[in-house]
Design a protein around this nucleic acid. Sequence first.
RNA 1: GGGCGCGUAGCUCAGUGGGAGAGCGCUCGCCUCACACGCGAGAGGUCGCUGGUUCGAACCCAGCCGCGCCCACCA
Length: 860
Amino acid sequence: MPAERLRALEERTRYEPAEVEGRVFSRWEEAGIFHPEPEGTPEENFSIAVPPPNVTGVLHMGHALNGAIQDVCIRLARMRGRRTKWIFGTDHAGIGTEVKVAEALAEEGRSKEELGREAFIERVWEWRREHGSAIVEQYKRLGASLDYADERFTMDEHYQRAVTHVFVRLHEKGLIYRDNYMVNWDPGTGSAVSDLEVVQRHVDDTLYLIDYPLESGSGALTVATVRPETMLADTAIAVHPEDERYSRLVGEAAVLPLVGRRLPIVADEHVDPEFGTGALKITPGHDPNDFEIGRKHSLDEVSVIGEDGHISEAAPERFQGLPADEARKAVVAALEEEGLISGRQPYSHDVPHSHRSGRRIEPLISLQWFCDMNELARPAVDVVRDGQIRFHPEKPWTGVYLDWLENIRPWCVSRQLWWGHQLPVWYRGDETYVGEEPPEGDGWERDPDVLDTWFSSALWPFATLGWPRETPELEAFYPTDVLVTARDIIFLWVARMVMMGIEFTGKLPFTDVPITSIIQAPDGRRMSKSLGTGIDPLEETEEHGADAVRFGLLAMASTQDVRYSHQRVKQGRDLANKLWNASRLILMGVGEGAKPSAAAAESVEDRWILSRLERATGRVTGLIEGFRLSPATLELYDVFWSELCDWYLELAKPRLYSDDNAAVSGVLLHALERCLQLLHPVMPFVTEEIWSYLPGERGLLAVAPWPEADDSLIDDAAERALGDVIEAVTSLRRYRDDVGAKPSALIPARLEAGFAPELAAHIARLARFEFLAPDASDGDVFGTLAVPGGEVHVLRSHAFDPESARERLAARREWLGKEIERAESKLANERFVERAPSEVVEEERRKLEEHREALRRLSA
RNA sequence: GGGCGCGUAGCUCAGUGGGAGAGCGCUCGCCUCACACGCGAGAGGUCGCUGGUUCGAACCCAGCCGCGCCCACCA
């Protein structure tokens, strides 16, 4: 080892991520290991398409967790020798980006309307050139081994062609169509949005009871509504067909107050006779239910609220031009004047709001483009139902996915925005043209709308690889293997990728879908910028290191919702430091020319750690393969810290520091090497850094082989033997504490338990006892305690004070007494002895005997 | 309205039919020649409540209470 590196090893007693991470990342990038050549088949290769972050985005905890999980999968596959591609890119994020750039414009005192469409879009591209790379750098800070050399964007020219191609094909199949239909109108963004972009929020409203005079002049029909302003667009009244109160009125009509329109009274099952008065005003133009009822009964459709949120010319003149909420007041006032409000009551209910703008959704009839999902959904249901695509954990996500797809509804795909994929649709008079190339001839005007962002996202796993062209990348890496996401976009994204993947490539876009936790603020609230509850993963990385953040996130995230735990990240930081220091111990201690070796271990402790490592290797591999990363991470922590550091390193020290340390050096290097390999996917930086200090020419850890568990090294006898040693040491250490022994004093004692001499020596050293020969006559026996296989007679010495020792030992005896009682009563139960499996009964007998022995022998 | 998840040590969470676990925090003792981001030893829990199944339940079943999420066209 060069002197300079040796000095670094000797001097640095603390691992410093800030000093290491940039350097290590550069080594990976320079080696080009993140960018695979497109060769081989998708079966041999391994690929994941990253959920594309928004170009406008900054890395948040969700990305960090999601990225850490994917990187573990990618790094595992890469170490297993598979050609590995983690497809990278960003999403143009239609509404989000458009709003952001419009806000920037507003700060300059300009609006996008002033700028005009073309200049505005150019402005967005400019914005992307300036800010679009931020997220790239942020992923690098995390250590994500994405294929940065092949970055994609959903607005790339090729990607746009893929989107257009899909739209045109679906239109040809008749699945995409234009229709006047009830949509969710978002007054905030001035666009229609899909059902999935609507969130229900609780609203305290007033329920108004309004009298509608009957046409016959004999009385009135009272209806209940929370939106009196929509009455201006009423075209009927509905009652339940079996509601006897109203059956005689069906077929007659009422007169719409303020307007004078004749409203037929119809019967419809949808009406709940229990609610309100049992009579429902029907407003097909502004209510989704009423729209359906209206179509069923061929009612007129009147729209009085326009896309601008104001009352239109279809309403009486005095209301025209008012914003909807003011129109409500005006309508109520007018009705009151006529004495037609017969009641009002507070009413609290859920009301749809725009997920994007937060504004209350205005349901209205609008001419939009829709995609019929029924045909696309069917195969997407089948592949999940028969297990070709698997969610992890399977429950409850499989059911969630299937429920949604089995009740799917048409998807409104057009958006009244500028930034996005403009519809490949042209109009000329009554003609409509849909095609990948603009139509021939003059006078065509292109539809100004763009597609829902999720329409292009649905093509992500294959459009990023060049589809619909038959590119080498597509040949080599599609289908991908794993798709990692949180539950909130299972419908928006996952389901649609499955549908589009099957429809257009004939293949499943991926086979495994691990669903990640959603990280909440430490107090259990949502992490959000506006609430001020967000925690910046980059700040955490700066403070504790990327490995610490990765470890922490992976360790804390096991269930659906999890609170951010600073302690877990610190645990990761401590682990990185421990790795560094254990490595220093080993690397500074092993002899010149030592090589890792797991063969022919002579010492039982060597066979023990080798066996433990093989078991851990198998368990960790299985857990990662099952996407159970939290237990995998904690298992790694445990085997490295609690077994290797706490026990094996201590057991190995005497031999390591002796002249003849070749054998132990081999085992130590093997153990270190193994731990670094196993920990690398979780903590890539610190492991790669330490790897570079290991002896021999060995290249990058990131492409070193992943260890396969070797059962021939499993050694039950060694594990039992060391288990006894550990128990004996712990008992003796506790005894030291119990009797208040001086920390540095050796306690003289006689060990009578049949331990091999080497093991007895380990026990003595680790517990700071001095074992005298069994027949040694020097000293009085102060007391006795049980250890596995026998007992230890402790001699009187200056190491502790006998008086206080006696009191403390009484407590121990009491505990043993209780344990004996418990076991006795269990074994006295005949049915337990009869029916429980014999090994369970045997175990209980063994424990009883052990405790009886311990109590018999514990004396003072 | 329907569905799902959660309720385990002071905190954050594992465990999911056979003696209650981790990290942090706490107590006691240690600067022991890798690490005080450390070492050793401890204290701390009627595993939400009530019934049931079982020789045996934190774990399975039923009901209840509390918290959260998703879906849904009762105005």
